[in-house]
């Protein structure tokens, strides 16, 4: 029996899982859609991972969670480490490319830039109120153009004259796209234009004021889009590396952190039949009216959060 470490990255659009052995080699990995239900997505993720492992060989001893549902999934899986996705991505990327200086990460709803010097994060930025230039934007435009998001990048590569598309905001980009299509621009030119718009938007917002130094690593779901990779390389004027596992970096990073934590717990894959549910209510104990979320496992409360002060604290032993 050898020890293994599980990293789970639950994003707004996709859920990623990685199982590592003691030498940080990936033993199993899965990528699936979150579909707005992180608890169910993780159940499916766990069954998919279990099928790839030999249960007599590998034993999961620590779990790490990251992504926007990290806290919820951390409670569900009894995680040793619950880490924000910025740190997780940096750790994951550095484990594969120790000399990396710039990490470009574009996911479903957010995008970030992480600057690294001598193996430590020296600066980072994340998109703020707007989802322009992220995966969600590209996939909604792919739908409008009736093409598969998986083919998007390939189609863009066929273009010789990318259509200029306003990149400031999704609403502007969308109306620009519609007008350009209606006056007869070719589909591949529009698709290439969109890829370029994502890159310009990223560099003008998230990358604003940040010095991009080579080697540059591109990761997150959008890094699978060859059209966007090409646009990045053209505009930056430097090579951009995309790893085969570039969509799994967050899960990889948090699995490494779980291993480093040295906290070991029993873990069981069979969560499919266990009922997890969440319940939200408004705490009325003071004027703040915090929204408290309680997590139940088989009707037993396992965690709760959302309270701003001690008045709203819920003890785990308290049963509803």
């Amino acid at each position: 029996m050898s020890k293994a470490y599980l990293g789970i990255d639950v994003g707004s659009i996709s859920t990623k899982g990685v199982v590592l052995d003691e030498n940080n080699h990936i033993k199993a990995s899965t990528y699936l859609w979150t579909e707005g239900d992180p608890l169910y997505a993780v159940k499916r993720l766990l069954s998919a991972l279990k099928a790839q492992l030999d249960s007599s060989q590998d034993k999961i001893v620590a779990v790490g969670t990251t992504g926007s549902a990290r806290k919820l999934i951390g409670a569900m899986t009894g995680a040793a480490v619950i880490k924000n996705e910025i740190t997780a991505h940096a750790i994951g990327a550095m484990s594969v490319h120790p000399d990396v200086r710039t990490i470009i990460e574009i996911g479903g709803q957010d995008s970030k830039i992480i600057l690294i010097e001598n193996g430590i994060v020296i600066d980072y930025a994340m998109n703020t109120l707007c989802a322009a230039g992220t995966g969600a934007f590209l996939s909604s435009q792919a739908q409008r153009l009736h093409i598969n998001i998986e083919d998007f990048g390939e189609i863009a590569l066929h273009s010789t004259k990318p259509t200029p598309i306003a990149a400031r905001c999704t609403v502007f980009a969308e109306s620009d796209l519609v007008h350009k299509a209606q006056i007869g621009h070719k589909k591949e030119d529009i698709v290439a234009g969109l890829c370029k718009a994502v890159v310009t938007n990223y560099l003008n917002n998230v990358g604003k004021g940040k010095k991009i130094i080579s080697p540059v690593i591109f990761q997150g779901g959008v890094s699978k889009n060859v059209g966007v990779i090409k646009a990045f390389e053209e505009i930056l004027g430097m090579p951009v590396t995309v790893d085969t596992n570039s969509h799994l970096t967050g899960a990889l990073g948090v699995a490494i952190l779980a291993k480093k934590s040295k906290v070991e717990n029993d873990f069981c894959f069979d969560m499919t039949d266990i009922e997890f549910k969440t319940m939200g209510y408004e705490c009325k104990k003071c004027s703040n009216n915090c929204e408290i979320i309680c997590i139940y496992r088989e009707n037993e409360i396992i965690d709760a959060w959302g309270n701003k002060c001690e008045n709203g604290a819920i003890r785990k032993s308290y049963k509803n």
């Binding site: 926007s68 880490k83 924000n84 996705e85 910025i86 740190t87 001598n118 193996g119 430590i120 994060v121 020296i122 600066d123 980072y124 994340m126 959302g306």
Partner: peptide, 22 residues
């Protein structure tokens, strides 16, 4: 919503800790 806020703040904390150790 706190999620975006805490993500950025936690990452900031991790970063300044790492920088200080380095």
């Amino acid at each position: 919503s706190e999620t975006g806020f805490t993500t950025r703040l936690e990452a900031f904390y991790d970063m300044i800790v790492m920088r200080k150790e380095a």
